[in-house]
Design a protein around this nucleic acid. Structure first.
Lengths: 321, 321
DNA sequence: CGGACATATACTCATTTCGAGTATATATGT
DNA sequence: ACATATATACTCGAAATGAGTATATGTCCG
C-alpha cells in the first residue's frame, strides 16, 4: 500500500444516559454552531485498539469513563467530512460508537440533551406525536407524488408505509431519519446538497440538526440500543445501583419511546431473574413506597442470550442426513 | 490531523453460500500458505464509500457480484496485521464484511470450502461433536486450572460454561473461537504470540487455521448470520429461485448447525407468509415430490421486523407521565 | 382522623405460540 | 402389493403473553 491510500480515522461516540424519564445524549455545543457528538482522532502511534483510543480522549474531554461501549458502524462516505479541519484532499473514515453510562456532570463544552430533541417523532410515550400526521405524512405524500416515475413512486410509498405506516416499529430509527433526509425534511439535506428548500417551508424542518452526519450516527445508536434492550440486560448500565421496578420500567419506556404494561413488565423482569430485592424501600413523594432492587450481575455470565429461539430438535426424527 | 495519524484501510469479506447441506465460504488458498478471506485495500481516491470499494475489487478478483452485504466490524488492533506487505510502521485498520450469495464458480485463486472446516465444533446437526468432550473440554479444564489465581479461575470457569456448557447457543461462534484462542487451542495463538505450544499436543489444535485474523472475522460473520436468520429473511439470499420446503429447512440447518423440527418449521414459514407455492413439483430421486416454493419478495417491504416483542400498551392505564 | 389520591403488588383469565407428536397422502423400486 | 421414503395435515398439552381486576400501603389535606 502506498502513502496515497492512507486515510485518517475519526472516532465519534453517542454517549447515552437516562435521567428521570428523559433519555439523553452528550453533545458538544458551541453557540451558533450545530450540536455535535464528542469526537476525536484515532492516533495509531499511541492506541493499541480503536476502542482504547476512544476511551482515552473521551476521558480527557468529558471527565468520566464509558462503561458499556459497542462499535456501531464505520462510515467512509465521500463528502461526509468530519470536524477537526483535515488537510486538503484528506479522506476521513469515521467509526461510530455507542456508549452507555450514568448521567454525569456537564463541562464548559458539553451538555446532556434529550435525544427526542433531535428525533421528536420517536417519542410515542404520551401519544402518537402530532407532527407525524400534521407535518411528516403530508410532506412524505408529496415526496411520493414527486417521484420521477410510477415505479419509483411505488417504492417510495412502500418505504413511507414501513417507516410511518399503521404499525410502529420503534427500532426503525435510522430508516426513518434516512427517509426524512432523502425527502428533504431535515436541515442536513439542504446543507449537504446545497439545494434550496422546496415544498414544505424550511421552518418546518424536523428536529434539531447536528454537525456533519452525527444525527445519522445518533439514529444508529438509538436503533441499536432499542433493539438490544429486548434481548440483553443493557438497561442496567444506565440505572443507579438500586432502583424501584417502576423506575426501571420508566427507563425502558424512555429509551423505547413507548409505554409498557406495568404488571406484565414486572412479571417479565421477575421471571427472568434479572433483579433481586434489597429489602429496603424507596421514599417516594407520594404513594406507597416500593421495594428497591438491584441488578443481578451474575446473569451476565450465567444466562444465555434469550433471543428468539431456533429450537433444536430434541428427539430423533427420520434419518437426518 | 497530521500525516502521521494516517492509516491504511483493508477490506475483507466473508462471502458465504450454501450448497446441498454444506455451508461454504469463499477462500483464497495458495499451496503451502494459510487460507485467507478475499481481501483488498480501500482506495480513497477511487471509491466513494467503503462498500463500493469492496464490491469493486471483489468483482475483479472473484468474477461475481455480491448480493446482500453487511458491514461486520472494524478491527484496529495493533499486531493483527493484514496481507499486502505494508511499509514498516504502517498501521492497518481492517473492515470486515459479510456477503451472502449463491455458490458460483471457483477461480485459480479461490475456492469454496465448508466453514465447518474452520469450526468443526460448530456443527451439531448429526450429534454433539465428539471433539468437544474428547479434546476441547479437557483442555479447557486445564486452562481453568492454570489460571493465575482463584478469581481468574472462576471467571474462566464461567466462560467455559457459557461457551461449551450444558446448553448450546449456536450464536456464540465468536465467543467460542476467542476462548479457544486464549486457551491456546488454535494455531493462530502460537503464530501470533510466538509462544511454544504447551500442554495439549499441537497436533490437537482445532480446525484449520487462517491467515492473520481472518478466522476471527469468519466467526463474526457466522455469528451474525446465525443471529439474523431468526428475525430477517436472509436465508433466501442463499437459495435458488425456487426450492422445496425441505431444501429451505436443510439450508437453515446447515447455517445454524442444528436440526429442526420439520412440521413446526413449515408451520412457521407458512404462517409468516415468507413463501408462496409455484404449483410445480420437484422431481426427487425417492419419495413423494414436494411443491416448489419461491420467496415472497414483498415481505422485505411490507413486513415489520418480527423481533422479540416489546409490546406497547394498548389501553390507557394510570396517568402515564 | 378519614377520605381522596397515588402507587405497589398479587392474582386471574383467555389467547396465542410453541414443542412434540400422530395420521395420512403420494411417490419409487421390486 | 408392499417396503420405503418423503410430503403434508392435523392434534394436543405446556408455556408465554396481553390485558385485566383486586387489594395493600403509603401521603396529603381538610
Amino acid at each position: 500500500m502506498s502513502g496515497k491510500d492512507r486515510v485518517s480515522i475519526g472516532l465519534s461516540a453517542a454517549i447515552l444516559a437516562v435521567e428521570v424519564e428523559q433519555p439523553v445524549v452528550l453533545v458538544v455545543s458551541h453557540d451558533g454552531a450545530e450540536d455535535a457528538l464528542p469526537f476525536g482522532p484515532f492516533d495509531p502511534a499511541y492506541h493499541r485498539t480503536l476502542e482504547s483510543g476512544l476511551r482515552k480522549w473521551v476521558g480527557e474531554q468529558t471527565r468520566f469513563d464509558l462503561g458499556y461501549t459497542e462499535q456501531l458502524y464505520t462510515f467512509g462516505d465521500k463528502g461526509r467530512h468530519m470536524p477537526g479541519g483535515g488537510n486538503k484532499g484528506d479522506r476521513v473514515v469515521s467509526v461510530g460508537y455507542l456508549a452507555l453510562t450514568r448521567k454525569g456532570p456537564e463541562t464548559a463544552e458539553t451538555r446532556w440533551r434529550s435525544w427526542y430533541h433531535y428525533f421528536p417523532w420517536e417519542d410515542w410515550r404520551d401519544a402518537r406525536p402530532a407532527m407525524i400526521d400534521g407535518v411528516i405524512l403530508p410532506s412524505l405524500r408529496k415526496f411520493v407524488k414527486d417521484a420521477p416515475d410510477a415505479e419509483a413512486a411505488e417504492l417510495r410509498r412502500e418505504r413511507v408505509n414501513l417507516c410511518f405506516g399503521e404499525s410502529w416499529d420503534e427500532e426503525k430509527v435510522l430508516e426513518r431519519y434516512e427517509l426524512l433526509y432523502e425527502a428533504g425534511l431535515v436541515q442536513e439535506y439542504f446543507r449537504d446538497t446545497g439545494k434550496p428548500p422546496r415544498g414544505a417551508a424550511p421552518s418546518q424542518s424536523l428536529g434539531t440538526a447536528m454537525l456533519f452526519d452525527h444525527r445519522r450516527i445518533l439514529a444508529t445508536a438509538i436503533a441499536r440500543l432499542r433493539g438490544k434492550l429486548k434481548y440483553r440486560p443493557v438497561v442496567f448500565e444506565l440505572m443507579a445501583p438500586t432502583f424501584t421496578l417502576l423506575e426501571l420500567q420508566r427507563a425502558v419506556e424512555a429509551l423505547a419511546g413507548l409505554r409498557l404494561h406495568k404488571q406484565n413488565f414486572r412479571r417479565l423482569v421477575a421471571e427472568q431473574g434479572l433483579v433481586e430485592g434489597t429489602g429496603k424501600l424507596s421514599a417516594p413523594a407520594r404513594g406507597r413506597p416500593a421495594e428497591l432492587f438491584r441488578f443481578r450481575r451474575e446473569v451476565l455470565r450465567e444466562r444465555l442470550a434469550p433471543g428468539v429461539r431456533l429450537t433444536p430438535r430434541r428427539a430423533r426424527q427420520e434419518r437426518g442426513g
